[in-house]
């Protein structure tokens, strides 16, 4: 099967990721962290932006920049993932409904609360009539999106896919989620975050590029079995642990971090381990941020925000990303330099 190349990647998070700035760990005392929003008017006409909540603005801007970077005007498929959907407008409409006892409701927040608003708005902005789909499967929403993108390219229904994910903090529901988390014996230590990541994927060869080499998810795996699942995943992609140059781990500080410790032990001590949720904060589709960062390391051979020295031997050839949510929905993503 022909490899899938990442032709461009754009990300918005609490980090300076939209401008490829330096990644800095978030202060863990902060319960939640908002994204660093770029100047949206560079990407979205004001008339369209006036109804958009952060999720929609983030998604549309990142998608637009990703297409620009890849020199693509019209993708053959627009695939989006979101764990919680458009939370802010959901909260807005719900509260208006409750406060006004079902009277004097206006439709804007309801329309904007629909899960496929981001995918629909991207299509509308591009006048793109191609395949359009949205996945909303909790912490595997982005993985579902990538899975469909992979399928679309492999079956030949698309040659260029715009695939991405987005989640926004909102203002209210996240507090209930936090409340529930604080009741856990060992709650998550990372703050809640928000963000987006969009990618242009294609089987068209990109010289000196990065490929999406493998993607696999598991509903449930025990801590005892996770290493074997990971090794099997690497074997299926013709790799061993020694060939992995960096590992991204979804550590949050909760009682399920044992999975990461077990997986981490399989790799050489000297390689870099990046606890990516300490940078983006935790949200259902933060895996998009990890993929963006990993592809950056492979593409540029140095961390975002630093000047890369030319002509050095490549430091990064293969990167593995692993995350899970409360011991369930495990996901492995493998990226390689061509």
């Amino acid at each position: 099967m022909k490899p899938i190349y990442i032709h461009s990647a754009v990300c918005i998070t609490a980090q300076d990721s939209f401008e490829d700035g330096i990644m800095v760990p978030l202060k863990t005392s902060e319960g939640k962290v908002q994204a660093k929003h770029p100047e949206y008017r560079d990407f979205i006409p004001p008339a369209a932006a006036r109804r958009m909540a952060p999720a929609v603005k983030m998604g549309v801007a990142a998608a637009s920049k990703a297409l620009q970077k890849a020199n693509v005007e019209q993708p053959d498929a627009i695939i989006t993932g979101s764990g919680m959907g458009c939370m802010l407008d959901t909260e807005k409409f719900l509260n208006a409904l409750i406060e006004n006892k079902e009277e004097f409701l206006t439709p804007t927040a309801f329309i904007q609360s629909t899960h496929n608003t981001v995918g629909g708005q991207i299509a509308l902005g591009l006048h793109c009539k191609a395949y359009n789909n949205t996945y909303v499967h909790g912490s595997l929403s982005f993985e579902s999106t990538l899975f469909d993108a992979q399928l679309a390219l492999q079956e030949g229904s698309a040659t260029t896919v715009l695939a991405g994910c987005v989640d926004e903090l909102g203002t209210e529901f996240v507090e209930y989620v936090r409340l529930k988390e604080q009741q856990e014996t060992i709650p998550k230590q990372v703050p809640y975050g928000e963000g987006t990541a969009f990618f242009v994927l294609s089987q068209e060869v990109k010289e000196e590029g990065v490929i999406l080499r493998g993607l696999q998810t598991f509903r449930t795996v025990s801590e005892d079995d996770i290493t074997e699942k990971m090794l099997q995943f690497l074997r299926e992609n013709q790799l061993e642990t020694e060939s992995i140059d960096a590992v991204f781990l979804g550590t949050t500080g909760d009682s399920y971090d044992g999975y990461y410790n077990v997986v981490s032990k399989s790799f050489l001590p000297k390689i870099v381990r990046i606890p990516f949720k300490e940078y983006s904060g935790d949200f259902y589709t933060c895996m998009g941020f990890a993929v963006w960062w990993a592809q950056y390391l492979l593409q540029e051979q140095c961390a975002p925000g630093y000047n890369c020295e030319p002509d050095v031997t490549p430091k990064y050839q293969n990167i593995l990303i692993y995350t899970q949510e409360k011991g369930q929905n495990h996901s492995f993503i493998l990226l390689s330099k061509t």
């Binding site: 899960h115 496929n116 789909n133 949205t134 996945y135 499967h137 998810t217």
Partner: peptide, 11 residues
């Protein structure tokens, strides 16, 4: 079912 599972939401 423990295999591939996902949710679609396009209104």
């Amino acid at each position: 079912i423990t295999g591939f599972t996902t949710t679609v939401s396009t209104a």
